[in-house]
Design a protein around this nucleic acid. Structure first.
Lengths: 190, 190, 190, 190
DNA sequence: AGCTAAGCGAGACGGTACGTCGTGTCTTATT
DNA sequence: AATAAGACACGACGTACCGTCTCGCTTAGCT
């Protein structure tokens, strides 16, 4: 037996929960993260403000829950024949996610907020979708060598910096990035 | 001569300007970027609110002016004998700047804000201290090959991602990063 | 016989009813009428909110039911030998009730609320404890002359105004008030 | 020299002050005291909420300032030839004020609130318009005998109770009240 | 004994006012 | 003309209470 929580009381409304998450998705695109407010979310969702505060403490938490699932899905790439194709395909997905996806916009906003808000830092640390996706790809490319953080940073870093520093995603040569990453991988200190 | 501005009137107070910039520096460390406000800056600086608005439009502009000079200085590394030492030294400076320097905290906050504020994006684009410093190092290491954005991203990216994603700066192996970067440099497609 | 209500169903809980009335009594003294809330009453009584709303529409109704019985009792004075003693004794009880009794505090609050809430006005009109008590005394003092509203107002008014306008009840000379009231009574236009 | 306050700063807006006071007057009649809110006052006045809170702490304070002047004016009666006419005229004005005047509605609301709010009690004690007006009449009727609180209570009390307890003002015989009051006055203990 | 129905505690729901704070603008007197 | 001071209209903050609703659980009278 597990379900021991709250014996009485009206159960949480799944409808309200979804309305809030959809409202956050919509508003992020329409007004941006800075103009995203708890009040605005509640109004857009047709929900009382207390209902939002009851389940989420900050707009960052709502946004995190709203886009973490999409993020995982968008960063998963299909297996390919060669490591080069696999890495290139992953980097393309990464750039697409960070630069164009709604979920990516949410992720960038959260990562930005985490730079000056320890609570958000801790929040996004609970599910590090970027590292996890890179780790999955690396483990598939070279199952013998377990993916470490340093390798993940070398894989993700250049594209990540490219997007975060505001450069044009179309100008990034992901194929060259993948080639150079794999060369390092095959030539590390013996 | 030079002073061609408004014919009459009181000149701008240099004292007020410096008080504002120092106030921003102090407050960023004390309360963080999110809690940084124009009102708070003015109060801390002992300056009228209008005086802040007269010379800067947003808190981002004040912060930018307050930390861009420090940033340039901290990211300049002394020339070294070998490329490997030079690159390693630069990456160390980069990590130190992003992870520990007050100016770096300001830069991170601005770059974060730029993710959802086009005005801030444009602002920090006017003086890309990170790319400029990397460019300087690259040109010194290999004067024959002019530094391009892709190489800059490969150099800065991994360390940048490491810090921005909240990893411990002490765990980053900059020497290994430098080695792998230089290997790519020497082996690019002929 | 008589019990024609709903054929089935759980009967009303007398325990809950009393808990609510006691809670209102307690809270009125502790936090005052303004801070008295339906939610607070339910919590203090250890009762569901709906249970309060099921039997009373407003906090005024609960309070009325909670203090009307006490009020009647406190305003009833024992017969005395002389009219003067009787009237004085009644005025003393009136002042004691209005100024010091918990039930009187409830009555003052309700009468105050009635000034801007027609529903409360109608509510307290259903059982005018003040006038009724005065009427009883007057009828005993002079059975020949039925107590009219004007006489009741002359009897109650001065003390009522004294308390309602915040004056010190100890400074009121009820004996003098009684003497002057009786003089009027005996000298009205023939 | 007196005007030493605040050397700098924008002066208080008289326009905003009047807009707020008029808004309170209007809203009291339209929605009643219970539904009167600081937010509503600010909106109706076309004024920021902070502006209201800057100068008044509670809706009671705003209302007090809004109706105290009207109250004083409405309770001042013109001198008459006979004491009976004077007293009757005053009682008529008193009833008219309490039962029909907007300012009187405000006064009743405040006096009601004072029953359970010490701050309001203290507030209305700073300018006791009812007692002051009665005092003025009594001093004119019998300059030899200075008006005491007990006499004031006997004069005001009956009419006050009549209105506060919700009776029909038209049914009150002020002439009889005045006659009986004057009889007491002339026959007090020697 | 089983069924039906209303009351019960609990607590989430959509709303709205609270009093505070920061926004960017404005209006003073002073320098 | 720039300054320090501070009032202005505006609107988001997070909290509290409103009155309603939906749960699972009594607790009775009526088959």
């Amino acid at each position: 037996m597990i379900e021991l929580k709250g014996r009485g009381g009206r159960p949480r409304s799944e409808q309200a929960r979804e309305a809030v998450l959809h409202a956050v998705d919509d508003l992020l695109l329409e007004v941006g993260y800075a103009a995203l407010t708890m009040k605005g979310i509640a109004m857009r969702a047709g929900v009382g403000r207390q209902t939002v505060y009851r389940w989420w403490s900050t707009k960052a938490e709502v946004l995190f829950e709203a886009c973490v699932d999409d993020a995982e899905e968008e960063l998963a790439v299909a297996p390919t024949r060669t490591p080069l194709a696999e890495i290139t395909s992953y980097l393309d997905a990464l750039v697409r996610f960070l630069a164009h996806s709604p979920a990516g916009a949410g992720y960038r906003a959260l990562l930005a907020a985490a730079q000056h808000d320890p609570a958000v830092k801790q929040l996004i640390a609970t599910k590090d979708v970027l590292s996890a996706s890179a780790s999955a790809v690396l483990n598939r490319v070279d199952p013998a060598r377990p993916a470490d953080d340093q390798a993940i940073a070398r894989l993700i870093g250049p594209a990540f910096f490219w997007i975060m520093s505001g450069r044009d995603p179309a100008q990034l040569d992901t194929h060259e990035l993948a080639r150079s990453f794999l060369q390092d991988l095959g030539s590390e200190v013996p």
